[in-house]
């Protein structure tokens, strides 16, 4: 549905804004997870077709033409695995944040000057 894909785009923009403007590393990772949620909403909404149902064969769709009553299962399958990967990547980023805190005793991005130009 278009409304949900617009909502997903707004979430992506908010998340990118947060990643670019926030100084705290944990806040940046929160921005990343907001982008993740928005992107998943957009991808699933691409596969949706108005008036059709979930691709699961049950009593309700028995005898009907499956090609005319089901939504596209591929975006759902992709997003399902992408959510699990997103959790693992977020955990990896958070562990890096813990490591950076032990290195500099600070979570503010301004204190890490080694790569500044």
């Amino acid at each position: 549905m278009t409304v949900i894909s617009i909502l997903g785009f707004i979430l992506i923009i908010i998340g990118l804004w947060g990643m670019l403007t926030q100084k705290n590393i944990i806040k940046m990772i929160i921005g990343f997870s907001i982008i993740d949620t928005g992107l998943h909403l957009v991808i699933v909404s691409i596969g949706f077709i108005k008036g059709r149902t979930a691709p699961i064969i049950s009593k309700a769709v028995e005898g009907l033409d499956t090609g005319k009553n089901f939504i596209d299962p591929v975006p759902s399958a992709l997003v399902l695995t992408a959510i699990v990967i997103g959790l693992a990547i977020t955990a990896l980023m958070l562990v890096y944040a813990v490591k950076l805190f032990r290195f500099k005793r600070s979570l503010q991005i301004e204190d890490f000057e080694e790569l500044k130009w």
Binding site: L41, V44, S45, G47, V79, L80
Partner: peptide, 13 residues
């Protein structure tokens, strides 16, 4: 967002 996935007919997601 998980409520919205139900509106998009994707119960697995």
């Amino acid at each position: 967002a998980s409520v919205l996935y139900l509106f998009l007919a994707a119960p697995d997601v």
